[in-house]
């Protein structure tokens, strides 16, 4: 093969990947699993798969917040706080008012955070990065104040959430019961509804959307409120998995949730990508986590490697898909 052939092959490969971004991701995922199996023969079994999915699901849900906001060129850095607040408020309210009501009460602050984000982004035109960072900090503060008032009542994670978070039925994690409909809903929203199209439109060219008659504030408000709601849901599921509500419960998932969306091919500049890739991205990150844990390297090195691998994957990906 001459260098020119190789070059044109690469170009064509890049084009294919750009049009079908999910394929290389799935291949990468399979390669990671194969590596794992190679390092520890026998590890990849039904139980392991179940566990991986179980841990990937809350991450994938939180990453939905990032994906949807990133489609408009935004981001939701308050998602982890929204999730934590929902989980914490819910768990502390269960002893007082029972599970169903506590869950509803828990979701309220998450949606409120979202509405404030939406208001700031849409009406005050604050950059989403700053806006959501700000609301996240404020909400964390509020949660600390709240904690002082409820210390006495203690906290309980309802059995139902525990069942959903950790349980299995016929080997499959129960969390799928929530996640599969959720994922289908998000994919449908993004592809088949006017709202979804508007997200892409705002991310591609806000002026064009405006000229077409889109009132962007409505979209932003709805989007960030929805993101808050999803974050709350992720928090509920995650506390069912971890079973120990704390003030920093979901924080470790924030940056991985952004990474999952980016690895999944969603552009942080908006207008490109989708939730399908994000789900695979979340799986990739979870498997990668296991792989690095298995290698028994110290925590510091592990983080460095984790960061490097994410950078490498994204760089290669961007290079392949942006050829001239």
């Amino acid at each position: 093969m001459t260098p020119q052939d190789t070059a044109s092959l690469l170009v064509r490969l890049g084009r294919f990947l750009r049009d079908n971004p999910i394929f290389p991701l799935i291949i990468l995922l399979l390669a990671l699993i194969a590596t794992l199996e190679f390092m520890r023969p026998g590890i990849v079994n039904e139980r392991w798969i179940g566990n991986t999915i179980k841990f990937a699901i809350p991450l994938a849900m939180l990453a939905a917040c990032q994906t949807l906001t990133m489609l408009t060129g935004g981001i939701d850095l308050s998602a982890s706080v929204g999730a934590t607040i929902t989980a914490f408020v819910m768990a502390t309210q269960v002893p007082i008012m029972g599970a169903p009501l506590a869950i509803c009460i828990g979701l309220v602050p998450a949606i409120l955070i979202g509405l404030v984000n939406g208001f700031g982004v849409a009406v005050c035109r604050v950059h989403p990065l700053i806006m959501t960072l700000g609301t996240g900090l404020i909400a964390t503060g509020c949660l600390q104040v709240y904690q002082r008032f409820v210390i006495a009542s203690g906290s309980v994670v309802p059995d139902g959430l525990g069942w959903l978070g950790t349980g299995r039925t016929w080997g499959a994690p129960n969390a799928l019961l929530l996640f599969v409909p959720f994922a289908i809903f998000v994919l449908w929203l993004q592809r088949r509804t006017g709202f979804g199209r508007l997200l892409y439109a705002l991310g591609s060219n806000e002026t064009a959307a405006k000229i077409s008659g889109v009132r962007s504030w409505q979209v932003y408000l709805a989007l960030y409120a929805l993101s808050g709601l999803i974050a709350g849901g992720a928090g509920l599921l995650y506390v069912g998995l971890i079973k120990a509500p704390s003030l920093s419960l979901v924080s470790p998932l924030l940056l991985p949730s952004v990474a999952a969306a980016v690895i999944g091919g969603t552009s942080i500049f908006g207008g490109r990508g989708g939730y399908g890739g994000t789900i695979v991205g979340a799986l990739i990150l979870t498997v990668l986590g296991t792989l690095l844990t298995l290698m028994q390297i110290p925590e510091g090195t592990r983080r460095i490697l984790f960061g490097l691998i994410i950078l490498a994957v994204t760089t290669i990906y961007v290079r392949l898909t942006n050829q001239r």
């Binding site: 509804t193 006017g194 709202f195 199209r197 892409y200 439109a201 959307a209 077409s212």
Partner: peptide, 23 residues
């Protein structure tokens, strides 16, 4: 919207209004 398809660009104004946010 330079990154989006011809289809989406043409369909844009039809979806702009709030009542068309649905399916």
């Amino acid at each position: 919207m330079m990154m989006r398809s011809v289809h989406e660009n043409i369909a844009m104004p039809m979806l702009a209004r709030f009542r068309n946010w649905g399916p």
